[in-house]
Design a protein around this nucleic acid. Structure first.
Length: 477
RNA sequence: CGGGGCGUAGCGCAGCCUGGUAGCGCACAGCGUUUGGGACGCUGGGGUCGGAGGUUCAAAUCCUCUCGCCCCGACCA
């Protein structure tokens, strides 16, 4: 139902929660730290799923499903992996009325159980590459939770692949990172910085982790997707071996990569405004809402006849919704659909029918600039143009915001200043000590070392030591 | 686990300091008027005041204990 939204400038965190709840995306559940995704939020997630899945299929990946429960011994097989996850595991010790011989872990991620199967499936170089994805839920016992961004249970996809060579696996890792970038920027309209994670931020068990980092409306960073080069760590732990063309036994090289329901939170935090949600047309569950307006019964008949024609014409091409609820005023409906982020609204009333036109209102522009009128016989081409323009404009707005709030920092003082309210791009020598000091003193962490570098070496912003690459420093969710 | 804040109708809150009939707004139900930017009027329903104990003639209000939630840190997609 309709609620007031706390302005983002007053309290960004409250603004975010208000939008998620007011737009009926999700709600807190009776189970602490868990989230109920409501139909509207789930429809948005389904569109995210489809956008990603289409890209996975196009690159030869297949979907499969592995069990929710993982034997404790599996998790313990890879040393770094256990260490990274043990505090946040949910463990089942009872089943069927008696204590289990071996506790079962509710999966925090599925590398281990998937490798147990990969070890059986892979015998020959002819079985490679093995390209598997699964859509599922995972559980991580987080201390503090936030709707979509961090919940105890969350939905995601996790891709797992096995390859004959390290080069192939690295290539796959970066291919999937690029797919995430492509989805984030072209469908979710979220500009991202693809890069490599620092040693301290990488996935437990990976050789190298990569991520796409996005800037939220409060200028904090959000990791919107990750892709890991696992090397042979899990292959060795689980004995995933194959015979190469020379009849020699070798361990496979692996990758894993994931995007979660957090992406929905990112869409809210990047595009939302004080009126509510703003959804990019490519992922919006409803792209166009039609609001008919009438006073008398005679007007109603006239308007509805026109509206039916419009729905018939647009319905086949776009995701449309007709809001003909009689008991609510048009103004109320306008506000409600704005809050829910529908990219384009069509208003059709007696005055429009008389003139053979409709009023189109864009969600991506301020109210004063958002309205235009179009002749009914040009409606569908105009809707098509506007949806494209809205998609492009939301991305452009977000990209400007990211660029305007990202600054090069040559000195430590500059870094401290920049990082208080934005992203800092600065040389980093690669030492964990410098990373830790910066985190301690500014609360900013290394979000990633961008793949794109200008190639010139420099001096570490912290210790002045030699540095080959620049890193992105920011506060993060 | 540390540091703050809050528990009163479905939701958001006032009342508490200074004890004395349980309140307001929104939402909900009925009727009527409305409908091009969150309509209005009248009527109505809805409460273990988070829980337990204590002080008192009398507790939402004072005291003690307890439970729960939210925010800020530590953990993290």
């Amino acid at each position: 139902m309709v609620r007031k939204i706390t302005p983002a400038s007053v309290d960004f965190s409250k603004w975010y929660t208000d939008i998620v709840q007011a737009a009926e995306l999700a709600d807190y559940s009776p189970v602490k730290g868990c989230m109920v995704i409501r139909p509207y939020g789930y429809a948005l997630w389904e569109n995210v799923q489809q956008g990603l899945d289409r890209r996975f299929k196009a690159t030869g990946h297949q979907n499969a499903y592995f069990p929710l429960f993982i034997p404790e011994s599996f998790i313990k097989k890879e040393a770094e992996h256990v260490e990274g996850f043990s505090p946040e595991l949910a463990v089942v010790t009872y089943g069927g009325g008696k204590e289990l011989d071996e506790p079962l872990i509710v999966r925090p991620t599925s590398e281990t159980i998937i490798n147990a199967m990969f070890a059986k499936w892979v015998q020959s170089y002819r079985d490679l590459p093995l390209l598997i994805n699964q859509w599922c839920n995972v559980v991580r016992w987080e201390m503090r939770t936030r709707l979509f961004l961090r919940t105890t249970e969350f939905l995601w996809q996790e891709g797992h692949t096995a390859h004959a060579t390290a080069e192939e696996a690295v290539e796959e890792t970066l291919r999937m990172l690029e797919i995430y970038r492509d989805f984030a920027e072209n469908d979710a309209a979220i500009p991202v910085i693809p890069g490599r994670k620092s040693e301290s931020e990488k996935f437990a068990g990976a050789v190298d982790s990569y991520a796409i980092e996005a800037m939220m409306g409060n200028k904090w960073a959000l990791q919107a997707g990750t892709s890991h080069f696992l090397g042979q760590n899990f292959a060795k732990a689980f004995g995933t071996q194959y015979l190469n063309q020379d009849n020699e036994l070798e361990y496979v090289w692996q990758t894993s990569w994931g995007v979660s329901t957090r992406m929905v939170g990112a869409i809210v935090m990047v595009h939302g405004d004080d009126q509510g949600l703003r959804l990019p047309p490519n992922v919006a569950p409803t792209q166009v809402v039609v609001v008919p307006i009438w006073k008398s019964d005679a007007e109603r008949a006239e308007v509805m006849a026109a509206v039916e024609k419009v729905m018939a014409e647009l319905g086949g091409q776009f995701r449309c919704h007709l809001d003909d609820r009689p008991e609510l005023s048009p103004g109320f409906k306008f506000n409600e659909w704005e809050m829910r982020g529908i990219p384009l609204r069509i208003e059709l009333g007696p005055r429009d029918v008389e003139k053979g036109q409709a009023v189109l209102v864009r969600r991506d522009l301020p109210r004063k600039e958002a309205k235009s009128s179009v002749a009914l016989d040009e409606l569908s081409s105009e809707v098509s143009n506007l949806l494209e323009a809205i998609q492009a404009n939301l991305f452009a707005q977000a990209r400007c915001f990211l660029e305007d709030n990202t600054h090069q920092s040559a000195t430590y003082e500059e870094l401290c200043e920049v990082v208080a309210d934005g992203f800092a791009l600065a040389y980093w020598c690669g030492s964990a000590d410098c990373e830790a000091r910066i985190k301690e003193e500014t609360r900013a962490t290394i979000r990633c070392i961008p793949l794109k570098q200008d190639g010139k070496p420099g001096h570490c912003v912290c210790c002045d030591g030699e540095a080959r690459e620049k890193a992105v420093f920011a506060r993060a969710y």
